[in-house]
Amino acid sequence: MKALRWIVGLGTLLIAAGAFTLSFGKLHTIGEIAGYGDKSWIYPSIVEGFVTLCTLAAFLRHGQRGAWYPWLVGLAGFSYSLWANAVPESVPVEVVRAIPVMCIPLSVHMFIIIAGLVDQMAQRAAEMKAMEAEAEADEASEGFGFFDEATPEDFAPDDNAPVSPAPEGQTPVIETVPDGQPVKVTRTRKVRTSLASRETYLQLARDAKTDEKRAQWLRMADVAAGN
């Protein structure tokens, strides 16, 4: 499987390199026609580089609100590249010269989108890691309480004797044991739940190894969506 991946990756790289080389020649030609002279080699890099940048932004933003924007801009850039390669002599000089100017603000905007999406992915990965660690800790401690040692004298022998209330979130359980033996007082753990984003819980559900865990994360996703 790894060998197949390498073969497909190498083939894709060769196709992209060959296509860029051929497209480079056509775009270089219309750059010369537009009067860029010895700087005409920059023109193909601008056009094809911008289309690649838009494709990356669209891929990272896929499934999110506003994903149509990088797709639309990238499609416009691709259409221009297709036009310039298919019928280069029909492209007006004014359009050729306008492309680099338009790419300046649009490429900066695409970079801002990509940077923001990368930060979101890093934050989501950190949240998922923390949630998984918390879930593993809960599983490891499930069914166990925290035990303190006490003597029988600490508790009244009959039901009418006063018993001090336990702290909030803790319930004392008094067991009947022979005299002189310690009594175990079980305190229930007070679980504090912090909600992450709905997308984080959905990702955890997709990565869950058991149906029980998957159902748990889906319920948490519903709770997060309600908040």
Rank of each mutant, 00 (worst) to 15 (best):
D119Q: 12
R97C: 05
A19Y: 07
T176M: 06
Y201T: 00
Y43D: 04
D154H: 08
F24M: 03
K129C: 10
S194F: 14
Y69A: 06
A166P: 02
Q216K: 14
D179H: 08
M131A: 15
V108D: 02
R5L: 15
I114Q: 01
E168S: 10
L56H: 01
T55G: 04
A125Y: 05
I112K: 05
L117R: 09
W68H: 09
F59C: 06
A133N: 08
V95H: 00
G74Q: 00
M131Y: 01
G9I: 02
R97P: 02
E134T: 14
Q181M: 09
L27I: 04
H62S: 13
M131F: 07
Q181E: 01
W71G: 00
E32C: 12
T12I: 11
G116I: 03
E153K: 07
E127S: 15
Q64P: 03
P152M: 11
P167I: 09
A208Y: 04
P92R: 05
L56D: 04
H62F: 12
L53T: 04
Q123T: 09
A133F: 10
V95G: 02
S141I: 07
V8P: 02
D148P: 03
M110D: 01
A84Q: 03
A58E: 06
P182V: 08
T151V: 14
T55W: 00
A156L: 10
F50G: 00
K184N: 01
K213T: 08
T151F: 11
L204Y: 12
A196S: 11
G180F: 01
G116P: 02
A19C: 06
P172S: 11
F78I: 02
S141F: 15
M1K: 08
E136S: 10
P157A: 07
D207A: 14
Q64F: 08
A58W: 06
W6P: 03
W6E: 15
Y36A: 03
T21E: 09
T200L: 06
S141H: 13
W83K: 02
Y80R: 01
W83Y: 11
P100R: 09
V191I: 10
K129S: 15
K184G: 02
G37T: 11
W41D: 09
T21D: 05
Q216D: 11
R214E: 13
A115E: 05
F146N: 12
V101C: 05
F155N: 04
L10S: 13
S197C: 02
V96E: 05
S164W: 07
G145E: 10
L204G: 07
F144I: 13
R187A: 07
V73L: 15
V51N: 03
V93H: 01
G169F: 09
S23I: 06
V177E: 03
S40W: 01
K190A: 12
M128Q: 15
T188W: 09
M102P: 05
R219W: 04
A137M: 06
T29V: 10
V108G: 03
A86C: 09
I42C: 07
H109L: 06
